[in-house]
Design a protein around this nucleic acid. Structure first.
Length: 279
DNA sequence: TACTCTGTTGAATA
DNA sequence: TTATTCAACAGAGT
């Protein structure tokens, strides 16, 4: 589920608990989301601490508590944050419950690809400060994007867009939406991107991120109707521009949809692709 | 029932 | 160093 906008949506769910003390902690017996940490760590340090604030960067979240306590949350594929009544009883896939006087803050994750990290110290943890500037930030320049792509010359653009080191917060559907808008074939190798294509890619990345954040919600029902997104998974999906049936393939290990009419490989790039595929 | 698919990512291999 | 594959997991769909 979670890409940039959904991460932001989930983060805000817990905002009602900001400024309030954590009275008690409950953890699931499955400790996978806490991998790397001793199970007793959270109850020991978080009990009695006050929830101060939270922030999202890409798909990561960082929560700050009093006593120099930090909690990192990654939603994985099926994770979500929600708020329940104070007496809420933990359900099968609830992995972390923060009990507060007015409510219970709950992290639920059936597939357990999500992750909770603990950090204690005066400053945020290293893994957080190393996250590159967001795609909507002024620091995400076309030059930055191009120098990142230059480090992955043979990677298909679709696969490159999924690399969080270069495109924090971009996930499968945002990558497809962006490539469709930029009219770039998902299989185009990074080194074959022309300068006009790079400009289009950069602009559409920023556009898609900005719009997605504006439309955040529990579902994507409110997203503009003409978005590629809506056609992506539906059977018989068509290009919103001229109704061409979409092509689908696994690229970079992920199911990818594109319009064969809008997103064309140049004959040169195509030859390169087929010859390297034959090899 | 069995098999396939999934909004992720990071460890292991090539 | 970079690219690719696959496992971690649960549930829904065919």
């Amino acid at each position: 589920m979670p890409e940039l906008a959904e991460v932001e949506f989930n983060r805000k769910q817990w905002n009602v608990g900001i400024g309030m003390q954590v009275l008690d902690i409950e953890l699931h017996e499955h400790t996978r989301p806490l991998r790397g940490h001793a199970p007793g760590l959270l109850p020991k340090h978080l009990t009695g601490a006050k929830f101060l604030r939270s922030e999202a960067r890409g798909k990561q979240m960082l929560l700050e508590f009093s006593g120099s306590i930090w909690l990192g949350i990654h939603l994985g594929m099926t994770g979500r944050l929600h708020v329940e009544p104070p007496g809420y009883k933990a359900q099968k896939h609830d992995h972390l419950l923060l009990r507060q006087s007015a409510q219970t803050l709950v992290f639920t994750d059936p597939r357990q690809f999500g992750r909770i990290r603990f950090h204690q110290g005066p400053t945020p943890p290293d893994w957080w400060t190393r996250i590159p500037p967001g795609i909507n930030s002024p620091q995400f320049t076309k030059a930055k994007m191009e120098s990142f792509l230059a480090r992955h010359p043979r990677l298909a653009l679709k696969a490159a867009l999924l690399l969080q080191d270069g495109f924090p917060g971009i996930g499968n559907w945002m990558a497809d939406e962006t490539l469709w808008r930029a009219k770039i074939h998902p299989r185009l190798r990074a080194r074959r991107l022309t300068s006009p294509q790079a400009t289009a890619l950069w602009k559409q990345l920023r556009f898609v991120c900005r719009l997605a954040l504006r439309h955040i919600g529990p579902t994507y029902a409110e997203m503009p109707k003409h978005w590629f997104f809506h056609q992506r998974w539906t059977k018989g999906g068509q290009c919103p521009i001229h109704g061409e049936p979409l092509s689908r393939a696994t690229i970079g290990g992920r199911t990818t949809a594109w319009c064969p009419k809008c997103q064309v490989l140049s004959s040169k790039a195509k030859m390169h692709f087929t010859s390297s595929a034959r090899r």
